[in-house]
Design a protein around this nucleic acid. Sequence first.
DNA 1: CACACTTTCTGGAACGATTCCAGTAAAGGT
DNA 2: ACCTTTACTGGAATCGTTCCAGAAAGTGTG
Lengths: 155, 155
Amino acid sequence: MTTASTDETLLRERGLRVTGTRLAVLRALSEHQHATADDVVRAVRADLGSVSVQAVYDCLHALTSSGLLRRMEPAGHPARYERRTGDNHHHVVCRSCGAVADVDCTVGHAPCLTPSASHGFAVDLAEVTFWGLCPDCAEGSAADPVPVSGPGTTF
Amino acid sequence: MTTASTDETLLRERGLRVTGTRLAVLRALSEHQHATADDVVRAVRADLGSVSVQAVYDCLHALTSSGLLRRMEPAGHPARYERRTGDNHHHVVCRSCGAVADVDCTVGHAPCLTPSASHGFAVDLAEVTFWGLCPDCAEGSAADPVPVSGPGTTF
DNA sequence: CACACTTTCTGGAACGATTCCAGTAAAGGT
DNA sequence: ACCTTTACTGGAATCGTTCCAGAAAGTGTG
């Protein structure tokens, strides 16, 4: 999909310098979506040989605030980054292993963007997170009391 | 609203022991909804004189996992606890100060509960978080570059 | 192509929220 | 009242992330 030269263009378009680390971070996230900072560090190290943790965090911040990456932080799990941006999609998170998958907006045009009572808040984004068990963890978990994370377990 | 004796009953109903700390935690959360663990520690100390941080965390866990409290964790902010449970309501979070307010389910009957493609996940809860600026922070922030938190700033 | 200027990268130390630990104290069924 | 279970204390440890100061690399201008 996103080739190296395109990544370079993307960076320049946003006025960001093109560095090996940044390209490697983008490459890592093309390869595995929803990676944690730690995953990215490992991927970049496998790719470039070595990087400091901070260099990766700096990249992730720069890329996130310029809109090339999106950051999501499921309660109780480290933050995850993804390249799919600007399409207002949502996520399913596994309570047991923290796995994340994309979910397209349930009801065509952003159903939840106009909260009934917004208490005077100037709302600019609606974030929807589905909680459950991924196929792997669901299997045989009815019996096992799997350590559960995330908000209220039932509704 | 929830009186002390009712709190005692609530605890017993769930098979939880009735202790001063637990009652004080419930009381604290009746007084200010969406309190952080730290807020609760302070409130309980003001009430009982002294408690260890761990006692409060233990209570919060016990009460949360028995369903008497709901825990929510806005990305980039410490977790907050509330007594309103089981009604599937949502939240508005201020990007600037972290203030939280309740939002009733936008479209009558839980619009987002059936993700279009759930990737085989067994989904049991949909959590909707609205991001924006609270009235206090919105005022005069168009100019100020307020430090922003939470997921992607635009959509 | 070199210069000066900016921005990034390094390594190490610090941070805040939360959890783990082992021991002591309190709750409640019989 | 006794004994088992569960909660509470204080202190140290963990995890993800950020802060810091200095060294190194990127880039627009001359």
